[in-house]
Design a binder for these strands. Structure first.
Length: 922
DNA sequence: CACCTCCGT
DNA sequence: AGCTAACGGAGGTGT
């Protein structure tokens, strides 16, 4: 095989790494997340491609040669965040210290440098280009392949001529420039032909081969408007093609191969990695690139305990488990209390996770296709009832007919691949019977599926996705592959082996952080409860929904006509904020109240101010309210009514919010309208299902403020709740200095806003906006409040100090949230982290308590033998459907369990209401 | 896909 | 000097 030359598009990859990975800073505040991600990727590439030579290319400035040509094009590049900008030179420095030339030129982009390499290098070499920029696919030829990071930094697709053709309708790589000529590329300031998107462009180029040929045959093109566009914009198309073309004749590049040969690492690289706090990284690269003599001797001599030891360890185990975790945790976590990470998972090198397509596992899984085969396997597994079983199941079908479609099972070193309906049915039953402890990745789906099959899984003692979420709820993804990347520092297939390896790391992290109890006693047991709620679903009265929707459609049509008339434009779209902005502020000349990033703001607040200046404003306000209700809650709900059950089955997400709350999707049933009259009509569509008579709702009263009273131990607040006062009125009385019985409605309203503000981590500005008063006035309210509620003030300070010193805050049940920006030099980021430090313990504890309550309610209902069932959770409210005969018993049970879910230093109050629909259960 | 707007706790 | 109340999901427009 020919020797390989690897060319790295440094600019695009660092960019990718920056957005794909969590931010990371050194103790000194140097941002290193993108450099870290880049190096991680580089390491992987060295492993997988095994190049003999490596070069990296960078853009010198963001606006360069080709884009300059069209610098006056209306679009502008988004500004590069400073945290990212500072990492480019850093990365080049690291690469150069490793002996990898990092090239940048004044007049050429990284693309051009790469293109020139690709074309000018000795034709006997194999060339690999790695990039996050699709443009570079045009460089593919017989010996040049492009590794394109499809998403994030780990999902890499290797393109050669064939795979390019497969993705681009049989086009040759170079025809990409023709495609760009027509469709343009906003991110590169390439205009293309307006109105021609990827689909049309692909069709045209597939047919005509090039932009020039499309223009030559423009008369044959079907579609009048398309033809017109092409004719009117032919110069622009040709220019766009030119802009998209990578220049491959960059002069003055050093093409001597020796310059790019990989060399052993020197001490300076080790120093640099240490400065960046990339512990362990140096040794990983060292294993591939070798070490120069100055480093080897120091390792052998054991002068540097920090790096020498891991070098030996990872050399022995042949993997880098734990390093990744160390690195990420180093920024956000409490560095003092963490123990050393590397003893996490033994990661067998099974050859998985190659960048090049499906890897072959070391040991093939045994395929199980018949029930009898599974029975044999089950007997083997059950022979040791303490043996841990890891499994991953794929499900198919819809509620109430969910079923498993395939399952992978790992027990010890035996792995099975179960398929076929009989074998899977047997497997499903086994989940409910086997004594073995089991672990998986998304157990809610397992429970849902098993419940549909009439069985209840037993001894599911691990859900790794959930565990990873508790370890750090702020991550952007909890897909198994991403979790594996995080904990193991490797690209891994999301399979049982990965699951088992990651599990060790996750379990250890939870132990270290004292999260195991929250995990085992609350979050895991909650899963089947959520699964039952989802399967139960809730009935929306479809007839009324249709009627309401028709009614609404009529009103909307009339308002739309009116709006068009008032705007003086029959093409006016009242749904378009952009068009509205033009009409209001340019055509009608109304004063601009507020601007958004991209234009005029037309939100409610703005329109309210403009009310009376033009009749259109009022029309739009009315239109907006109805349009929202119509599209989101009427038309939006319709397709989500299950055709079999006739009910709406939302999905409760347990690993989304940073504070520990649940979220609800498809549809979101946690934001059904309630405030306006029309809104309540929508809420009233939700009714008890067949066999039930009432919707019963129980909600916590002021739970967040009660938690604030508890955690702050503020004497006024404690007293207020212990005496069951109206807190907002009491606050008004304190802040405005009037006796409780003289508090006016308005004063109470303002005090209420202040109380909310406190919970959110108040600012005078925010409160002023909320109250519609001056900032000064708002500031005085706050000062007044804090001088009366001293304990609250101390609490706020305490949380900020705590966050600053340990890097995270906790809820009462120990749930953590990391605040990496708490010491950031950027005022806005720091302030945000400070407000979060105040809010999260409150909001998160409320979420904890609600979860406890759900477990208690679920258990108590089952024990009681009542047929009432929980359908929905809306943060501080549970909604159940109940039979008339069980109404009072259920209400009593519900209230008791909710109020006693957790012991605070003030009483927890929960109020029950019931009705024939959700609106009247209030 | 980013942005705006708006629904809830 | 400038920007600021916490946590979410969804629909629509326009690139």
């Amino acid at each position: 095989m020919a020797d390989k030359f690897l060319i790295i598009d440094g600019s695009s990859l660092i960019h990718r790494a920056f957005f794909a990975l969590p931010p990371l800073t050194t103790r000194k505040g140097q941002h290193t997340g993108a450099v870290y991600g880049f190096l991680r990727m580089f390491h992987k590439l060295l492993q997988d491609v095994k190049p003999r030579w490596v070069a990296a290319a960078f853009d010198k400035s963001r606006i360069t040669f080709r884009t300059k040509l069209y610098a006056d094009y209306k679009g502008q590049r988004k500004p590069t965040p400073p945290e990212l900008k500072e990492q480019f030179p850093l990365c080049m420095e690291v690469l150069r210290s490793m002996g990898v030339p990092a090239l940048e030129l004044d007049d050429y982009e990284a693309d051009d440098i790469i293109g020139t390499f690709a074309k000018k290098l000795d034709p006997g070499l194999e060339v690999f280009i790695v990039t996050g920029d699709r443009d570079e696919l045009q460089l593919i030829d017989d010996r040049t392949r492009v590794m394109y990071t499809k998403k994030g930094i780990s999902d890499i697709k290797l393109y050669d001529k064939e795979s390019f053709a497969a993705d681009y309708e049989g086009l040759a790589p170079l025809q990409l420039i023709d495609l760009k000529g027509l469709m343009g590329d906003t991110s590169d300031n390439i205009p293309g032909v307006p109105g021609v998107g990827p689909k049309t462009a692909l069709k045209l180029i597939a047919e005509y081969g090039s932009v020039e040929n499309v223009i030559a045959h423009v008369e044959e093109v079907k579609g009048k408007s398309l033809k017109e566009k092409l004719v009117n914009n032919k110069e622009q198309a040709l220019l766009s093609k030119e802009l998209a073309t990578i220049y491959t004749e960059v002069p003055g590049l050093d093409l001597t191969l020796d310059t790019y040969a990989l060399k052993p690492l020197e001490g300076k690289t080790r120093q640099m990695m240490a400065d960046l706090e990339f512990r362990g990284f140096f040794n990983q690269f060292g294993q591939i690139m070798g070490l120069a003599s100055d480093v080897e001797s120091s390792v052998a001599g054991g002068t540097s305990a920090e790096s020498a030891e891991p070098a030996i360890k990872s050399a022995v185990s042949g993997n880098a488990a734990g390093n990744m975790e160390d690195l990420f945790v180093a920024t956000a976590d409490n560095r003092n209390t963490r123990n050393a990470g590397p003893e996490t998972a033994p990661v067998p090198d099974d050859g998985m996770g190659s960048l090049f397509g499906a890897p072959v596992p070391a040991v093939r899984a045994k395929e199980i296709g018949f029930a009898s085969q599974w029975q044999e396997v089950a007997a083997e597994i059950d022979a040791d009832p303490s043996a841990m079983v890891w499994f991953m199941a794929e499900t198919a079908g819809e509620i109430p007919h969910l079923r498993f479609e395939a399952a992978r099972v790992l027990c010890g070193d035996r792995e099975y691949l179960v398929s076929g309906s009989e074998a899977l049915a047997s497997f499903t039953g086994w989940l409910a019977e086997a004594p073995n402890p089991k672990g998986t990745a998304d157990s809610k789906e397992v429970f849902r599926t098993c419940f549909c099959q009439g069985v209840e899984p037993q001894n599911i003692i691990e859900d790794i996705v959930l565990g990873a979420y508790l370890d750090d709820p702020g991550r952007s993804s909890y897909a198994l592959a991403d979790i594996a990347w995080h904990y193991l520092g490797q690209d891994r297939e999301p399979d049982c082996h990965t699951l088992a390896c990651v599990a060790e790391a996750v379990k250890q992290a939870l132990l270290d952080k004292e999260l195991t109890q929250l995990y085992k006693e609350i979050e895991l047991p909650l899963i089947p409860v959520l699964a039952r709620m989802e399967l139960a679903g809730v009935v929306a009265d479809e007839k009324k929904l249709d009627a309401l929707s028709r009614d609404m459609a009529g009103k909307l049509a009339r308002l739309e006509d009116l709006a068009k008339e008032q705007a003086g434009d029959p093409g006016f779209n009242p749904n378009s904020p952009k068009q509205l902005g033009v009409v209001l502020f340019e055509k009608l000349g109304l004063p601009v109240v507020k601007k958004t990033k991209t234009g005029y703001s037309t939100d409610v607040k703005v329109l309210e101010e403009l009310r009376g200046k033009h009749p259109l404003v009022d029309t739009i306000l009315q239109y907006r309210v109805l349009a929202k209700l119509q599209s989101t809650y009427l038309e939006g709900l319709k397709p989500l009514i299950n055709r079999t059950t006739g009910r709406i089955h939302t999905h409760f997400q347990q690993t989304v919010t940073v504070t520990g709350r649940l979220s609800s999707t498809d549809p979101n049933l946690q934001n059904i309208p309630t405030r306006t009259e029309t809104g309540r009509e929508i809420r009233a569509l939700f009714i008890p299902g067949k066999g039930y008579d009432w919707l019963l709702s129980c909600d916590y009263s002021q739970i967040e403020l009660r938690i604030l009273a508890h955690v702050s131990q503020d004497s006024l607040m404690l007293e207020s709740f212990r005496e069951n006062q109206d807190v907002h009125a009491r606050t008004a009385s304190e802040v405005f200095g009037v006796p409780l019985d003289l508090v006016s409605h308005e004063m109470r309203g303002r005090a209420k806003a202040v109380n909310f503000g406190i919970v959110y981590g108040i600012s005078d500005f925010g409160l002023a906006v909320q109250l519609g008063c001056s900032r000064k006035e708002a500031g005085e309210f706050i000062d007044n409040y804090l001088s009366r509620y001293k304990g609250v003030k101390e609490y706020m300070e305490r949380m900020k100090t705590l966050a600053r010193s340990q890097g995270y805050v906790m809820t009462l049940l120990g749930r953590r949230r990391y605040l990496p920006d708490i010491n950031n030099r950027n005022f806005n980021l720091r302030s945000f982290a400070e407000r979060t430090a105040i809010n999260t313990p409150i909001q998160g504890t409320a979420a904890d308590i609600m979860k406890l309550a759900m477990l208690r309610v679920d258990a108590a209902l089952r024990k009681s033998g009542l047929s009432s069932r929980v359908l929905l959770q809306v943060h501080d409210e549970l909604v159940l459907e109940v039979k008339e005969a069980e109404r009072e018993a259920t209400a009593a049970l519900l209230q008791t369990e909710m109020q006693n879910a957790f012991k605070l230093d003030v009483p927890l109050l929960a109020e029950v209401n019931y009705g024939k629909d959700w609106a009247s259960a209030k």
